[in-house]
Amino acid sequence: MIQMSLVFLISGLVILGYSSSISGQNTYQAVVRDVCGPAIGNLCEICYVFNLFIISVAFLVIVADQLQKLCVSLYELITGLPESEMPYYWYTDQRFALFLLCLFFIFPLSVPKEISIQKYTSVLGTFAATYLTVAITVKYYMRPVHEINLSPLYSSGVSSWASMFSVIPTICFGFQCHEACVAVYSSMENRKLSHWVIISVVSMFICLIIYSLTGVFGYLTFGKNVAPDILMSYSGGDVTMIIARLLFGISIITIFPIIVLLGRSVIQDPLLRRRHKHTAVTESYESRTRVALTTAWVTVTLLITVFVPDISKVISVVGGVSAFFIFIFPDTF
């Protein structure tokens, strides 16, 4: 299943890069519209915005989980008391902390018209994922023997096949990068297709290794009791995992503006084109539109995050929609 999915994932990236090169477009939705026509282009834009929006929700849910665990960790480290004795105050609620994070960090980073700094900060995400994988693997081998959860025996039959196919949305969520790949390809200095193929293959194999090791050793450590967010399965006082939470939180904060930029452009560009037909598009109008769309995007995703705290439910939706951009739309080219 993983090998077959990896073939489709890499093929989709290569097809999108090739389509971008022959069409001369630098965004995913523009490539689809140019190659497949206006009707498919409109469908793509709707799915594109919806998918990016749900991805934003998923990212904020992950950040909220880490904020909650960080608050508990700091309380245990400072007071030496267990989590059960931690008093509740409104200003210590992770939802309030998430609101402050969105207000003072995520929103200001998402407002600019171009976010060129992301080409450097994105390295942090790779480092955070690698650190987490190494930490989970080391933690597994350092555990006392009597604490190790034995994995269940292999099962066969209809239930095992159903469970195997049920993880496809999660795989799509983990490997999704197709929404931004056209923009990435367009920003490259060397746009030879062979160079893009090498980048696609290497990137997907790195993801495969990181995800596989994290999933295997995380499951071997906690068994069926593992949380949807693996970091939530570790104790709050674990310094190694506190560092992992901080790294992941910072990396998501730097990645979130990219998602907003991609989704906002799909909505803003038609508005600017429509405005341009009747009058000149001033810088102030573009700025007001950009700020308004960014405000609405961050606000609505924050509200949904507060009321949908289960990351597994969000991932199942994101993974299902991501299949359009990984398997379906590239095949139409």
Rank of each mutant, 00 (worst) to 15 (best):
W196S: 12
W196D: 08
V197D: 01
V197M: 15
V197P: 00
S200E: 07
S200P: 00
V201H: 01
S203R: 03
S203W: 06
C207G: 10
S212K: 12
L213W: 09
L213T: 15
T214Q: 11
V216M: 14
V216Y: 15
F217I: 07
F217H: 06
F217G: 04
G218C: 11
Y219R: 08
L220R: 14
F222M: 13
G223R: 10
G223C: 10
G223A: 09
K224H: 14
N225P: 00
A227V: 06
A227F: 08
L231I: 07
L231M: 05
L231R: 02
M232G: 02
S233D: 04
S233A: 09
Y234H: 05
Y234L: 01
Y234A: 01
V239F: 13
T240V: 13
M241Y: 08
I242R: 03
I243R: 03
L246G: 08
G249D: 05
I250E: 01
I250M: 10
S251W: 01
S251I: 04
I252G: 00
I253E: 05
I253A: 11
I253K: 00
T254D: 04
F256I: 10
P257E: 06
P257D: 06
P257Q: 07
I258N: 12
I258C: 07
I258W: 00
I258F: 01
I259P: 00
G263S: 06
G263N: 04
G263K: 02
R264D: 02
V266D: 01
V266S: 08
I267D: 01
I267W: 00
I267R: 00
D269K: 13
D269Y: 04
P270C: 07
L271W: 08
L272Q: 09
L272S: 04
L272A: 04
R273A: 10
R273T: 10
R275E: 11
R275S: 09
H276L: 11
K277N: 08
H278Y: 14
V281Y: 07
T282K: 12
E283A: 12
S284N: 10
S284T: 14
S284R: 13
Y285G: 03
E286D: 13
E286N: 08
R288E: 14
R290E: 02
V291T: 13
V291Q: 06
